[in-house]
Amino acid sequence: MIYRSLLISIFCLMSNLAFSAEKELDKKTTLFDQTFSWQIMAGLSAVYNPYILTDVKQEEVNDYLAFSLLIDFYYKGFFLQSNNRRIEGLFQGGELGYQLLDKNDWALDIIAKPYLPGFIPEDIVKGQNKRIPSIEGLKDRDIGLGIGLRYSKYYEDAIFSFDLATLKPTDGKGWLADFFYSHLFLYRNWDIYVGTGFTFYSDAIVDYYLGVGHDEVTTARAYYKAKSGFRSQLELFARHPISKNWTFNAGITQSYYSNAMSDSPIVNKHNITQVMFGAVYVF
């Protein structure tokens, strides 16, 4: 209910700001030399993407391969954009939004995006070649679709952004604050990004995804009421053109999860290293 109210309020705010934003677009011929643009990309990548959940591993060859369709669309301040660094997909990286304010060196957007992937314990167990008592019988955790505001600050070769969002599966009780800084280094035809991120999750979010309810308690997992927690990240990503339509992409991300997450009976990791490399075709 709170989530729905917030959604309505933000879209009302968006409507009020739309007219003034339109006027700004007309003036900014450098940045807004196009009012409409789109781009479609398809990617194939190899990914090493371990789960934080206890005993869940990448098992099959297909678990290490990912195909993705990435769509970017922009029209007069509205945008749909996929995460074209994150080759694995739109669902965990795509964003639908509206540009409330866009100045030379900063911007304010309203965005809707899946902040957390969610999981279906039954499907996870089916995909593994073994029993996982800590996961079996858990209720589904829905995708963490969130709506929020993003402030972005642009520098010469870097960007800082801050998202404040609430997530739908927690009925608006859960919120997160996401800070991200990325610096671009150019070396010949390479784009090399070095980034760091910090995401604070409220207790309602951590508890929804990693808590163990009274009705989920078994001998393999005790009751767990989670507190608020955070994830910090370091990433390195590189991109190089192969041809007019193809790019090579590679990246590594190191994530650290706070005690509120790693103390959960369904989690057994503090740190995760994720690696991907692949090619993207730009249509």
Partner: peptide, 17 residues
Amino acid sequence: VSWVHKATPRKRRWRLF
């Protein structure tokens, strides 16, 4: 000289995972 990505009106920020 050619290029893969056209100049876009949106500034981007992306995280890998």
